[in-house]
Design a protein around this nucleic acid. Structure first.
Lengths: 149, 149
DNA sequence: CAAATTTCAGTTCCACTGAGATGG
DNA sequence: CCCATCTCAGTGAAACTGAAATTT
């Protein structure tokens, strides 16, 4: 019966469409890669923030990673169950937990980081080094523009 | 108490992260713009495909727009209720509906299309014409690469 | 009192799956 | 018999909202 599956050309020109499509493929590469390492996107983000900035409260982690406060609680539960982070009381402000990454958490983070680096490589495979820099630069400018307004 | 909300720099360099963020802002611009015109993203996609390719079955529409078969049904219900499309029987293959855009649908499509063009402009505001072409070219290549593999 | 933190429960949106009914 | 189409119901992930309890 030969239906062409040709996409509407009007749509294919729209930057919003292109970005959404590429983002969707990137997301699949990410979740697949992380799933193979038995983790999810939030886990990486939280471990990365702990690795880079050291122990922090849950609220601070939420702000640094862009993960919602509710999801921070849930993800930290899961990371704590696996011994990758530790909750302890903040004696100077008893509303807070202090979250610390454990040695096992650091090991796991480095494993995830390798996965993520590989995913970037897969995603950008068709682009040269120079092009990648240009793309990253433009995306960064777009993001900055839309965050501050 | 002065928590910096500084994002993990490891994350901010990741193209997957940048693309996801920009995509999320683009999505907000899109849904806000379309909501002001009392529509949603699927509506635009479906009307655009009908406008460009003429009447089609629901399955063909799904393939052309990338909208899932289930969501095609739902969105067409909503478009039909508003008189923007019409369902009729395909006499040559009675499993199918033939979907036709109505004159009111065409009017509505052009209104939505103006909204979408404006959203592209907002999204890419910080980039020059040349940069926009470069960005679109790179995204198109990335997409092509990941679709065919 | 107002504000911040942690937590839980629940909502909303999107993409998708499964299955039934009809037909090719 | 197998495949395609249309439809509805439902699932699962992601992002978020509301409210309660605690503490500042």
């Amino acid at each position: 019966m030969s239906d062409d599956d040709a996409m509407s050309s009007r749509l294919k020109e729209m930057p919003t469409w292109l970005i959404a499509q590429v983002s969707s493929h990137a997301h699949r590469l990410l979740t697949d890669g992380l799933a193979a390492a038995k983790s999810r996107g939030y886990h990486y983000r939280l471990l990365a923030a702990l690795q880079e900035f050291g122990p922090a409260s849950q609220a601070a982690l939420g702000r640094r990673t862009g993960v919602d406060r509710s999801d921070v609680v849930d993800s930290l539960n899961s990371l704590a169950r696996r011994g990758l982070i530790k909750r302890s009381a903040d004696t100077s402000d008893r509303r807070r937990n202090i979250i610390t990454i454990t040695p096992a958490g650091t090991v796991h983070f480095h494993r995830l980081d390798k996965v993520l680096v590989g995913v970037q490589e897969d995603l950008l495979a068709p682009l040269s080094r120079t092009e990648r820099r240009v793309l990253i630069g433009m995306l960064t400018r777009l993001l900055k523009h839309h965050v501050n307004e």
